[in-house]
């Protein structure tokens, strides 16, 4: 059997393009059967794999500026696959796949201890505080390729892993050895009307995401491209979601600098 070259799926999100419309959130919920409640006022109880944060530069008019930051799971690699959440799960219910770089979640294995939530600094891991209840008839429109999660387990963005499975199946049926870049795209990427999200294999120099991010794999995957940054770079989580912004204050908000500034 031919040894498959390891992939490293990741994203570049252009924050200068993002309008904060929320299409990515909606597409994600529809694609992944993400549950919702009648009353979603308490956002701390909401389940949203993709969340759009509103960033402000804190300045008064006329210098006020805002930026919207979509935040999917960062699919951290950490050091050698030790992402913050994977190593802490006591029941091996989450895994870092070295063949794809995707951090998975096994819903039927998770028993809801929530240690992974405590470990994740990006708040991408969400707990099902309630049983999912779908409005009458809506269960007919659920995605049959994604299992619906029950109350009491943790879930999170999977980079639409089911689409990767389907792309691989299709490639196999068509006699292709590997999938093409466009064969596997996440729902949020396709739904973004501003084309702010680019998704692909960070290890593949032909993929646009690689060309945009130019990750330095010998330096923990840090971006070599100008104006690119990753969230909380200093923690050493080694995430695979890159953000792009021409605005310095936005890039500065990607990490904590207070101790560094104090030292200076």
């Amino acid at each position: 059997m031919k040894h498959e070259k390891a992939k490293k799926f990741g994203m570049v999100i252009d924050l200068d393009k993002c309008t904060g419309c929320g299409s990515c959130m909606v597409a994600c919920m529809a694609e992944n059967n993400v549950p919702f409640r009648e009353d979603e006022t308490d956002k701390l109880l909401s389940v949203a794999w993709m969340r759009v944060y509103k960033l402000t530069n804190g300045k008064p008019f006329p210098d006020a500026d805002i930026c919207y930051l979509p935040r999917p799971c960062q699919h951290c690699e950490g050091h050698h696959g030790h992402s913050p959440c994977v190593s802490v799960c006591p029941a091996t219910a989450t895994d870092y796949d070295t063949r794809t770089g995707i951090v998975s979640q096994i819903y039927a294995r998770c028993f809801g201890c929530r240690y992974c939530m405590a470990a994740c600094p990006y708040h991408v891991r969400l707990f099902n505080w309630y049983d999912p209840v779908w409005p009458d008839g809506m269960e007919q429109s659920l995605n049959p390729d994604v299992s619906v999660r029950m109350r009491g387990v943790v879930e999170k963005c999977s980079f639409c892993i089911q689409r990767y499975q389907m792309a691989k199946d299709r490639a196999y049926m068509e006699g292709r050895e590997d999938i093409e870049e466009e064969d596997y795209q996440t729902a949020c990427t396709q739904a973004c009307p501003a084309d702010a999200i680019t998704f692909g294999d960070l290890n593949n120099p032909h993929h646009k995401v690689h060309q945009l991010a130019r990750p330095d794999h010998r330096n923990g995957g840090k971006p070599r491209a100008k104006n690119l940054f990753r969230l909380l770079e200093r923690l050493g989580t080694n995430p695979k979601v890159y953000y792009k912004s021409s605005r310095e204050w936005v890039r500065n908000l990607g990490d904590n600098h207070d101790a560094i500034q104090e030292k200076a």
Partner: peptide, 26 residues
């Protein structure tokens, strides 16, 4: 009481991830 799926509590023993501090605790 604290775990979300109490009936699966035994998973921590059965599917133990020895790298997790919580496994060692349990």
């Amino acid at each position: 009481i604290d775990i979300g799926q109490p009936l699966r509590g035994w998973f921590i023993f059965w599917h133990a991830n020895v790298h997790s501090m919580l496994t060692e605790v349990a």
